[in-house]
Design a protein around this nucleic acid. Structure first.
Length: 485
RNA sequence: GCGCCUCUAGCUCAAUUUGGCAGAGCAACGGACUCUUAAUCCGCAGGUUCUGGGUUCGAGUCCCAGGGGGCGCACCA
């Protein structure tokens, strides 16, 4: 087969799905009289003496190649192709006697050799080790994988276009932060040689985007990767994609409306409607979504009365009755939030906007306009999971300074995830930030919901994995881990 | 990080329940075949049973340690 030269390009091929669509009405045994050029991978090959059938697959779909010794150039070679070989083929579109639409191959080119196939041709590859470490194999070997990533791409494109329709401008802000801010999480640390200083991979987009608002971007957003130094799990990957958007002159209710507009719009874009099936239950994402306070939803799910007004001691008793474990240092807000997260959120099917969070768990959020101790924060919940966050943003530099101080105290008390005071950000706030609403949306989780999958790695092309053990005998230089000394 | 489970041919899986010659289908390789659809038929090969140690006359199987993976828990979105 080596006598076949691999060309540098292959002229104007037609996507297989297009061929299928265009000739759908061809009758069994009929010849169209039209030639096409197609390209893809040979996934199956059925050789039958002087004729052969191959199943060709490309990004768009699949189609049969019908090869005859009398018609097809280099027929013998074609029958010796490997499963997985990329080939380009040219010939007339026909439907076989048995009714299978095919290209009757006249000429063909080998485009790439595949050494090693794509697993069991019926069952594919199940080994998660291969599926995740060699995703390029998984994409061919297993049904539905490609479609899921196509869906992800459509979701992201849809979010961008919905935001653009409303006048939002997309920006890109730094990933390397001198101070990790905008969220509560432990960061990854890295080192900047020429500055002789440690830097952090961002844990949120928030602070820079707010500075964009202060700088006059009235509607601004970023879709970007953030990094949190925590374990891997069905819903967790150390790097994930966040959408954050900020809208000057808006409050958290405006942002809740935007949030459901985006989620419902994405659902419509990929499933055709706003009612979908998740974990074999129906989920109706049609706006507007119900709104309820945290106190109300806790009462609905647990029957217990829980609010900041009861005071810390009473809240702790309520937590004990509900079997929620608490840390010593928790204040009233943290206790309430913990009760909600442990007992209520997982049981909310929704979608529902859970509103009015305690202030102490929301250090960047504006105080509630009428309820002391609370902030204007909404978490949209669907299928027992948070889809994102909506805020009336804290714009008062004096209050913000006080919140940072409170976080510093938390940190002193041993909370490694508490925020660090960011003076650059405070200085920016002092220049004046208009009333602003903000949202955060976990893109990976949204895709999980829309694709009805239950593990984040099914929506990440290359999920985080432990580095592969080094096997090279020449002592590879790029081992992930430091050699034991 | 802690607990439970798991690792057998390139792939998907077997191997009589405290142990007795490591097997099948697909893929690969050789052959037959002019309408196949996971083509079929004949033939031929294919193994450090994750690694290292131990128990035993004998270990894929039992024990210990290590590694990878999975699932829970914890932290977080």
């Amino acid at each position: 087969m080596s006598e076949k030269q691999v060309p540098y390009r292959y002229e104007a091929t037609t996507p297989l799905s297009e061929v299928v669509a265009r000739f759908s009405r061809l009758e069994a045994g009929e010849e169209s009289g039209e030639d096409v050029r197609v390209a893809g991978r040979i996934m199956l090959l059925r050789v039958q003496g002087k004729l052969a059938f191959a199943t060709l697959r490309d990004w768009s779909g699949k189609l049969q190649l019908f090869c005859l010794a009398a018609v097809t150039e280099d027929f013998e070679e074609l029958t010796r192709a490997n499963l997985g070989d990329w080939i380009g083929a040219e010939g007339e579109v026909v439907r076989t006697k048995r009714g299978e639409l095919s290209v009757k191959v006249a000429r063909w080119s080998l485009l790439a050799r595949a050494l090693g196939g794509f697993g069991d041709k019926w069952r594919g590859i199940h080994d998660p080790e291969v599926r995740l470490r060699q995703r390029e194999v998984d994409l061919w070997a297993n049904e539905g994988v490609r479609e899921r990533f196509l869906l992800r791409s459509r979701v992201v494109a849809c979010l961008r276009s919905l935001l653009a329709e409303r006048g939002f401008v997309e920006v890109e802000t730094p990933v390397l932060h001198a101070i990790p801010g905008g969220g509560l999480a432990r960061p990854f640390v890295t080192h900047y040689n020429s500055m002789h200083a440690d830097f952090y991979l961002r844990i949120a987009l928030e602070l820079y985007l707010k500075r964009c608002v202060i700088g006059g971007f009235e509607r601004v957003y970023e879709i970007g990767r953030v990094f949190r130094n925590e374990g891997i799990g069905p819903k967790y990957n150390p790097e994930f994609t966040m959408l954050e958007a900020y809208q000057a002159y808006g409050d958290y209710l405006d942002m809740a409306e935007l949030q459901e507009h985006l989620v419902a719009g994405a659902a419509k874009a990929v499933t055709g409607g706003t009612r979908l099936s998740f974990e074999e239950r129906e989920l109706d994402l049609t706006p507007p979504w119900r709104k309820a306070t945290m106190t109300e939803v806790i009462a609905e799910v647990t029957g217990a009365e829980v609010s900041l007004e009861m005071g810390l001691a009473e809240l702790r008793r309520a937590a004990a009755r509900l079997g929620v474990e608490l840390k010593e240092r928790f204040d009233a807000g943290q206790v309430m939030s913990e009760i909600y997260e442990k007992t209520t959120e997982p049981n909310l099917w929704g979608p529902v906007h859970v509103m009015d969070y305690p202030e102490s768990v929301s250090p960047l959020t504006r105080k509630h306009r009428s309820k002391p101790g609370y902030v204007e924060r909404i978490t949209p919940v669907a299928a027992g999971r948070e889809l994102g966050e909506c805020y009336s943003e804290l714009v008062d530099p004096v209050d913000q300074r006080a919140r940072f101080a409170a976080q510093a105290a938390e940190r002193e008390a041993g909370d490694e995830e508490a925020m660090v005071t960011d003076d650059d950000f405070l200085r920016a706030l002092e220049r004046g930030m208009p009333p602003t609403g903000g949202i955060g949306l976990g893109v990976d989780r949204l895709v999980m919901l829309l694709a009805d999958v239950h593990h984040i790695r099914e929506v990440l092309l290359f999920p985080a994995l432990r580095p592969e053990p080094v096997q090279s005998e020449d002592g590879g230089r790029f081992e992930g881990e430091t050699k034991p000394s």
